[in-house]
């Protein structure tokens, strides 16, 4: 069995840039192990197999792109290992919005978060308002990954997620990584597992 790592990926961007379609394309295409999520498409998972024999399982957290829900975004990107910030190449305003998300992530999110800037709707290149050069230059300045995708045709979709998967650090034990996914400031109770973890690590049985 290959080694699997699990990461939390948060999806940001204005509404109507095709965030959800992008992820649906990624999750439903190509891979055989797609399973209908149990509740709905706002939370999806997908596993990417890498050439080195490891595999990366993404837990994809979709966010509402409308401006009015901006204040709840921190609940979603908290403890995220990576973020995909999506804009629409036919709407230059959506890149502005993406920039503001990126600034927020750089300020507020985990400093080690990997951010990918993603220009969606590359199938509509005739109506392009954002040039590849402009977006790429910005991404390089900010140290972001960058790519263009078409959720409609599927072009570039798997590539960008695979690139992210390659870039994620495969150092922490898989379960510990996943464990970071949800430990909010909200948790103030007693963690009964703490002692067991401290003394023996994740695989030691709890002696309670």
């Amino acid at each position: 069995m290959s080694k699997q790592f699990q990461f939390k990926l948060v999806l940001l961007g204005e509404s109507a840039v095709g965030k959800s379609s992008l992820v649906l394309r990624f999750v439903k295409d190509q891979f055989d192990d797609y399973r209908e999520s149990t509740i709905g498409a706002a939370f999806l998972t997908q596993t990417v197999a890498l050439e080195d024999g490891t595999s990366v399982k993404f837990e994809i957290w979709d966010t509402a792109g409308q401006e009015r829900y901006k204040s709840s975004a921190p609940m979603y990107y908290r403890n995220a290992n990576c973020a995909v910030v999506v804009y629409d190449i036919t709407q230059s305003a959506s890149l502005e919005k993406a920039r503001s998300w990126i600034r927020e992530l750089q300020r507020q999110a985990d400093p080690s978060i990997i951010i990918a800037l993603c220009g969606n709707k590359s199938d509509l290149a005739v109506r392009r308002q954002v040039s590849q050069e402009e977006a790429k230059k910005y991404a390089e300045e900010e140290g972001l990954m960058w790519g263009e995708t078409s959720a409609k045709s599927g072009e570039g979709v798997n590539e960008i997620f695979t690139e992210i998967a390659k870039k994620l650090p495969k150092t922490a034990p898989p379960s510990a990584r996943a464990g970071g996914a949800r430990t909010g400031a909200a948790r103030t109770g007693v963690d009964l597992n703490k002692q067991a973890t401290a003394t023996g690590g994740q695989n030691e049985p709890c002696s309670c």
Binding site: L24, A41, A42, D62, A64, G65, Q66, S72
Partner: peptide, 9 residues
């Protein structure tokens, strides 16, 4: 379209 944009409201 299924996603957070329609779910959250």
């Amino acid at each position: 379209e299924e996603g957070a944009d329609s779910f959250i409201p």
